[in-house]
Write a protein that binds this DNA or RNA. Structure first.
Length: 829
DNA sequence: AGCACGCCGACT
DNA sequence: GTCGGCGTGCTC
């Protein structure tokens, strides 16, 4: 018997039960053309429904009975859509983040390109009316009626419109009677955009000859000939406008053989070219030069290709990236620049496009499907060498990648919240390793994890300590809000901040007020002594649960009654903190009725372009006071802003999260960097109930290293990352009672299995099951199990998790419960 | 998930 | 016998 070739395929079917590779026989006619990384159509399931699959493996030997296998139906791509390295990266991600194949590989490809086979119905052309009369079934009659009135109808639309439950059997029965016919069409969500282009088919020298041949009254045709002589081709629409001619004129010329009209693909261009100004090279400071040289030397000598640039705000990290990219282009290599989604404003994009022009593709969430698809293909086809984008741009399909830059490396938007819940830093690192590229992380406030790794020499640490404009960082004045209370000031603003705003308004300077009200959780604190209700076991602030009037620790489940008087000082000023930006806006407008106030947070920037609109208003001096959440902490460079007010630095400090101190330090440092960017000296006023907290004192001193040293000790003592891994398992269900029982069973099973299978169990700690901090979303209840485990045990724990979740023991419940696993989440909220 | 298969009751 | 409803179990 002839030797067969087999392909392992990831199939476009989203279900935990079908999350595996399927083997298909490669028909002889495809043997030469089929490559790993191509998409194919395969018959799947009992009905052999044709669905799309991605080939990840081609083999000659398999250990399944060939008789059980089906044949690949057809090829979707003529070239691999994913490179070998990207497939390796995807398989690695599946394992790393315990995600489904299909979820992983859909994130590696642009959204909407998946081919779906859609089934359409039509009435048989020569139907016999008698046959129809014979039908007694009401449902079948309904279908025939429907088809009589529509010219194109797919099965799903019919199902939706007619609301027939068991529609398939009715359709099948009609098909058998040969009254209707079913036909298939392959469809995708996004398509290439085509444009008609007119080509000149005559030689430019023959122009006069042709003009003579044309009818003397055909002046429109003559004009077109004149026009197109100077060029070779032009878009049909453009030609019609420029020569004021009609389609018939051009068609007439085509019929005479002087022109040809072709359908050509045009790529949508999301970058507004008019707005882009050239970004000139800046003079490098000595520190920048040294930084660049160190990186290049290390790359050339093949010594190290992972770097962390710790540069203070305004130290010119971007210019360093730009120079390195320039070098990559010289080496014929490509580069990816990742920035947090919220700082992916036109200003950021402009810096890269302004320097490198049409060598840049931009990828972000505000692009339409079509735009994103085109940007993706520009990269794939080698038309651009640089990709700038949010986290998903780490998958930009370059084939000779030289560099990945991750700017603002500490930002939490680099962790995906959708499956696969990947960490962009880890993915970028893996991709660099697979493709021999260099990784550069940059931040003014590096994440504890990255800084820790740099001290262990897993990343090479480079420092930029001076600002490019040689200006010093603005001083931060800390206001102790407890003392304000003693003075009888119960308002949100301290006297100092209030006076500073007043003064700024009088001097026509702008003010930024920052309050991070992100998150739902209010914490409980005493306004007199600063006491915050914390869990004794976890050193994490307790969350107020309104419905039960209890304080609860989301790490260990500890609960206590909400205190009416402060347990520390006995005062009655126990408050639930829940002031948001809206409240601030109201108060500011009341206090300064003539000031022009604008608020910028998720609520006010949801519409496309609203973000830019507000920023432009600030830029043009049409706003006196800008109130915002963390959205305003990044990248804003306004010269007339001289005052930054941080309303409540404690807000992030007391979130029930081990990263609370780190976030507070990062936010205060970043937002302080917004002040005094122009000539005038900036001023930062920071209000807090906990002025002695190290994240406040160190950020006041602009001392990252000191903050790091304090924080890393706490992480070690309480066993938080980077010393341990946290796995967050959230189980969701509509049924509250069953959810509790199930989660408890799952917990006990995991506990038992881990104890039986892994040695040194003291390295692993199971916490829960507890109601998740967001205990109910959209009518679904959520319970959570946390696993803390040391690095050496993570793989075995993950394996147990995978086995448990795919095991039959829990399988039967999958219709009732949804299990989501997050490895090292941003926060456990 | 999505789909076919098969069992069962209702109706001719 | 035929039609339609619903539960079950599998997908290379």
């Amino acid at each position: 018997m002839e030797k067969k070739v087999f392909a392992e395929v990831i199939v476009d079917n989203k279900s935990t039960k079908t999350d595996r590779l399927y083997t298909y026989i490669v028909p002889d006619r495809f043997e030469n053309d089929l490559k790993v990384g191509m998409r194919v159509l395969v018959p799947f399931g009992r009905g052999n429904k044709k669905i799309e699959g991605l080939v990840v493996n081609i083999k000659n030997d398999i250990n399944i009975k060939v008789s059980r296998l089906k044949y690949i139906d057809s090829l979707v791509d003529n070239k691999p859509i994913l490179s070998q390295e990207m497939i390796k990266l995807g398989l690695w991600m599946k394992k790393k983040y315990l995600a489904q194949y299909i979820d992983v590989f859909k994130t590696l490809m642009p959204t909407g390109i998946t081919n779906k086979v859609v089934k359409y119905l039509k009435l048989n052309e020569n139907i016999d009316e008698c046959k129809i009369q014979k039908i007694k079934s009401i449902n079948q009659r309904k279908i025939i009626e429907y088809l009589k009135h529509t010219n194109k109808a797919d099965v799903n639309t019919i199902k939706r419109n007619l609301n027939i439950k068991n529609i398939i059997s009715s359709i099948n029965s009609l098909c058998e009677k040969e009254i209707i016919e079913m036909y298939e069409e392959i469809e995708t969500e996004v398509n290439k955009k085509y444009q008609k282009v007119v080509y000149r088919k005559f030689d430019a020298d023959n122009k006069n000859e042709i003009l003579k041949k044309l009818n003397s009254r055909a002046y429109k045709q003559k004009a077109v000939v004149e026009f197109i002589t100077d060029i070779k081709y032009i878009g049909l629409k453009e030609l019609m406008i420029k020569t004021n001619s009609s389609l018939s004129t051009i068609k007439a010329l085509r019929d005479k053989g002087y022109l040809s009209i072709k359908d050509e693909e045009v790529k949508r261009n999301p970058i507004n070219n008019k707005a882009i100004v050239e970004n000139k090279k800046l003079q490098l400071t000595n520190q920048q030069k040294e930084c660049i040289n160190t990186i290049l030397k290390n790359i050339e000598k093949n010594k190290c290709n992972k770097f962390l640039i710790h540069g203070v705000t305004g130290s010119g990290k971007t210019e360093v990236y730009l120079r390195l990219i320039e070098r990559m282009l010289k080496w014929n290599k490509q580069a990816i620049v990742l920035v947090p989604e919220i700082s992916l404003t036109p200003q950021t994009v402009e810096r890269f496009v302004g320097r490198f022009g049409d060598k840049v593709a931009v990828l972000h969430s505000r692009l339409s499907l079509g735009e994103r698809y085109d940007e993706w293909r520009k990269i794939k086809e080698g038309k651009v060498q640089i990709a700038v984008g949010a986290r998903s741009a780490v998958f930009a399909p370059f084939d000779n990648l030289g560099l990945i830059v991750i700017d603002e490396e500490h930002e939490n938007s680099y962790k995906s919240s959708m499956s696969p819940k990947y960490n962009t830093l880890e993915v970028a690192e893996k991709r660099c390793k697979l493709e021999g590229a260099t990784l550069i992380l940059g931040s003014a406030t590096p994440s504890i994890e990255s800084y820790y790794r740099s001290l262990k020499n897993e990343l090479k640490l480079l420092k930029l300590t001076e600002r490019a404009n040689k200006k010093s960082l603005p001083p931060i004045e800390v206001v102790d809000m407890r003392k304000e209370l003693d003075k009888g000031n119960k308002s949100i603003f301290s006297e100092k901040l209030l006076n500073a705003i007043k003064e700024n308004l009088e001097n026509n300077k702008q003010t930024i007020l920052f309050l991070n009200r992100r998150g739902f959780s209010t914490f409980v604190s005493c306004r007199k002594c600063g006491y915050v209700a914390k869990c004794k076991q976890c050193d994490i602030s307790l969350t107020y649960h309104m419905n039960k009037d209890l304080l609860k620790c989301h790490y260990c489940g500890f609960t206590m009654r909400t205190p009416r008087i402060c347990p520390e000082c006995g005062s009655e000023y126990i408050k639930y903190f829940g002031v948001g930006t809206e409240k601030i806006e109201e108060v500011v407008k009341h206090l300064f009725p003539t000031a022009r106030v604008e608020r910028m947070d998720v609520d006010t920037t949801s519409r496309k372009g609203s973000h830019e609109k507000i920023l432009n208003k600030v830029k043009n001096g049409n706003i006196d006071i800008l109130i915002g959440t963390q959205m305003i902490t990044k990248g804003l460079d306004f010269h007339n802003v001289t005052l930054v007010g941080i309303i409540a630095a404690d807000m992030t400090l007391n979130l029930p999260d081990f990263r609370a101190a780190e976030r507070t330090f990062q936010l205060t440092t970043q937002v302080s960097g917004r002040a005094g960017r122009g000539e005038a000296q900036g001023r930062v006023i920071l209000q807090t109930y906990e002025p002695e907290h190290y994240s406040i004192t160190t950020s006041q001193a602009h001392n990252y290293v000191e903050f790091y040293e304090k924080e890393i000790k706490i992480r070690e003592e309480f066993e938080y990352p980077p010393f341990t891994n946290i796995i967050n398992i959230v189980v969701t269900s509509k049924d509250e009672k069953k959810l509790y029982t199930f989660t408890k069973r799952l917990f006990q099973h995991l506990d038992k299995t881990i104890n039986n299978n892994i040695k040194k169990v003291e390295d692993i700690e199971l916490i829960g099951p507890n109601p998740a901090p967001l205990s109910r979303i959209k009518g679904s209840y959520r319970w959570q199990i946390l696993i803390k485990c040391k690095n050496s045990k993570i793989e075995s724990v993950k394996q147990i998790l995978e086995e448990t979740i795919t095991s039959n023991k829990f399988n039967e419940y999958f219709n009732l419960f949804k299990i989501s696993i997050d490895i090292n989440p941003n926060s456990i909220m």
